[in-house]
Design a protein around this nucleic acid. Structure first.
Lengths: 294, 294
DNA sequence: CATAGCCAATAAGGAAAAATCATGGATATT
DNA sequence: AATATCCATGATTTTTCCTTATTGGCTATG
């Protein structure tokens, strides 16, 4: 049994005539005969009594008719639903991000995006860059926002945000306007745990100057950005933190930024997604939103 | 869009592979490719991201999948419903009949039939034979039970019941065991109105003996069988009535039958139906029931 | 990093199905 | 009766569907 058969049956039933049905459907009358015959065979019943000049639907046809109509309607509905599926920007957005973007960048972007498209719901998953990237590779995420690039032919990386690691401290602890890398080593210093992206980035910058944190005056190793911030505010020491993470404190002068002479620790956050993967509408829209904003 | 396309889509979606789907469906892989391509074109969207070695359904495919399953289920359901439609003997039976069969024969048959098939409901329509026959011709009825044949190529007549017009009276009015047609004319006689089947049949029999009711001793003309019966019981006169209509009175000896010498007024009632019309199950079953009983 | 293996896309040819045209039988209409 | 209408049938053409063979992209393995 086929859609075509049902369409023809419905038309014959409506028009009570093979010929009229054939005209409405723009096919020849023998075709109608053939199809009805096949439909009758496949359903193993007679659908119309051929009375010579006229036809009469049988009891089976009366049963079939409403059901056939229903199926045809459902099919049309599918076409519409599929077309409509792409139109509205709505639904859930599950986004992976590493610590900094997940805590300080994505929430702002999500907020402005949701103002424009209220029918979206965000779910932000914070993991380290490599986990996020693997989830994208395994199709567990449509995209992620990460600070480290992995080399993979499957992935597309698009630079999203410029970030910078900055040395911060209370004005009390470090009243000076600038500092040299050398002098910094004598200052009480707070660092993140091993494996933290921020720490890794910082150590990479130090390596370029053939220095390690081993020569620093480490007063504490802390497990989160906010722990470090609290400690810095509490005057325990200075630290190197993403500017976006301390923007508020810098603006309100609770902390201040002390440029390290001859050292710029810029880094980028990237949007990572699979090259060949088609993004659902809301994801594509959010991508555009992010690229436009930054 | 076609059922076949949906079946293929569902299989690809389930197996997450064109090749596996092709094996399950016993068709070649390029055919799958082709059909999915066509489905994508007709729905104007991408359904699967081809990622090289694997494929991923897109958001549109996720929308389509449950709907496609639903439609396929519905189609199977149709097949079953149609097959099942013919099985049970149930539903409404609208049957046309002329006066005598409608009042004295059909009710008994309907009663015994309903004992066998409790899920049927009868609707008995009493009209004169020509009206019933026309309704059958116009497909307003599947069949009727009539006393008069019309010549039409479209119709099938099947003899159902032998009936006989009999002269009845109270023993008080007509104590004799037999009577001649000649003597009958002096007896007070009750007749039906013009147009009644019984009267017409009786007059046809008289015509064969070149007699009309004009020469009878008519004491009243009455509009229904029961009116005539009441009048005969009230001793107003004798009358000629279908035996089935007075069987009770004959059995209980309230009235008795006086054979008219050299006159047998047998007549038949016929089942009338359209030659080419397919009967719904309950009608076909009732037909068989009637033929078996008589 | 190169090769073998897997998967889908493409091309070309053949088989099956569907549509058409022409025709014939049946049935109303006049 | 003659005509027009309607469905069925048969022969023919067109379209669709399916297969084999091949290509090209990706991946896992040595």
């Amino acid at each position: 049994m086929d859609i075509h058969h049902l369409k023809i049956f419905v038309s014959v039933y409506k028009n009570k005539s093979f010929t009229k049905a054939s005209e409405k459907l723009h096919i020849s009358q023998p075709t109608i005969s053939e199809h009805i015959k096949n439909l009758e065979k496949s359903l193993n019943c007679k659908l119309f009594d051929r009375l010579g000049r006229s036809i009469m639907p049988t009891a089976e046809a009366d049963v079939l008719y409403p059901k056939a109509l229903q199926i045809l309607d459902d099919l049309d509905q599918i076409q519409e639903d599929i077309s409509a599926a792409g139109i509205g920007v709505k639904g859930k957005l599950i986004i992976g991000a590493s610590t900094i973007p997940g805590a300080y960048i994505l929430p702002r972007m999500a907020y402005t995006f949701k103002k424009q498209y209220p029918d979206v719901a965000f779910e932000i998953l914070i993991e380290d860059s490599s986990k996020i990237t693997n989830m994208v590779l395994q199709h567990d995420l449509f995209f992620g926002i990460v600070g480290a690039k992995m080399t993979s032919e499957k992935l597309d990386y698009e630079p999203l945000i410029e970030d910078e690691l900055v040395l911060v401290a209370t004005p009390k602890l470090l009243p000076q306007k600038t500092i040299t890398l050398d002098k910094l080593r004598s200052i009480p210093f707070l660092q993140r745990e091993i494996g933290s992206g921020t720490r890794q980035t910082f150590e990479n910058f130090l390596k370029k100057n053939t220095i390690t944190t081993n020569t620093f005056n480490i007063v504490a190793t802390l497990g989160s950005i906010s722990a470090v911030k609290q400690a810095v505010k509490g005057n325990l020491g200075a630290s190197v933190i993403s500017r976006v993470a301390v923007q508020e404190e810098l603006d309100s002068s609770i902390l201040h930024e002390i440029p390290i002479i001859n050292m710029k620790m810029k880094r980028k956050f990237y949007l990572v997604l699979q090259k060949k993967r088609t993004l659902p509408t809301q994801y594509a829209a959010f991508c555009e939103h992010m690229k436009k904003k930054y």
